[in-house]
Design a protein around this nucleic acid. Structure first.
Lengths: 125, 125
DNA sequence: CGGATATATCGATGGCTGTCAATATGTGCA
DNA sequence: TGCACATATTGACAGCCATCGATATATCCG
């Protein structure tokens, strides 16, 4: 059984500035692992590029050269992480992108982490 | 044996806009997997937060509660990916952050992917 | 040279996870 | 009610990889 793991505010402190604690690193890694997977990246890009911003499972299964259970599995992982939103209408399940989680992950890779210019000393201990 | 995999321009097309090809998704996932690991995230954050922007292995081993071979392994993965730069001075090896790769990864998570406003149609097929 | 120190490499192992086939659940339709 | 369709869940398996102990390599010092 897999625990639900949401990508929320507490997951993604900037990668740089002060060193990540063990717990912070684990949470951020867990969040990144959700999207560090080819099939899931393709699912996100397919859904976001689809008209109406949503897709049902059958459309996605066609394009991914993967079995339906596998696609369903990846959609569940993305949904549990909060990256996708699932809505069932009739026999079909429609998935759409939830904007915030990806933005939070993006924020964790903030370039200030990596470019220690003269202003790097500001709040940083 | 592990192949060298650099995080370069060709790795990180924006996650949204047009759907990722199978190859693009694999390359991006491979790049993300490099940082989707707690120990490696901590290494990056420790190095970037250290004075002078660089650390030697011994300093890092102390703070990570991991064996020296394991730390050395993670540093190699990060270096092969282009995220860290290694410089040997005397008996010590000093690692510092290479700014570009993390920025490229950040670019791949571009929020335009996720916020389909009225301007979402621009170049997008 | 020889010992000490710093780091890297090797080989083995255990745990995690992506994948599939089979099956279950749920929904619409006749 | 019964069938067809769409999706989810389960159980099993294979491949990957983080970790470690042991060892190799490299550098400094006396």
């Amino acid at each position: 059984m897999r625990l639900i793991q949401e990508i929320d505010q507490t997951c993604c402190p900037p990668l740089v500035g002060s060193p990540l604690s063990e717990t912070e690193a684990e949470r951020l890694a867990e969040a990144l692992r959700v999207i560090a997977e080819p099939a899931r990246l393709r699912l996100v890009s397919l859904i976001s590029a689809s008209q109406g911003g949503e897709s049902c499972v059958c459309d996605l299964t066609d394009q991914l050269d993967l079995g339906q259970p596998t696609v369903s599995h990846h959609l569940k992982v993305l949904t549990d992480a909060g990256i996708l939103h699932r809505e069932k209408r009739g026999r079909w399940a429609y998935y759409r992108i939830e904007p915030e989680p990806l933005q939070l992950l993006r924020g964790a890779l903030d370039p200030r982490t990596v470019v220690p210019g003269p202003s790097a000393q500001l709040g940083v201990r």
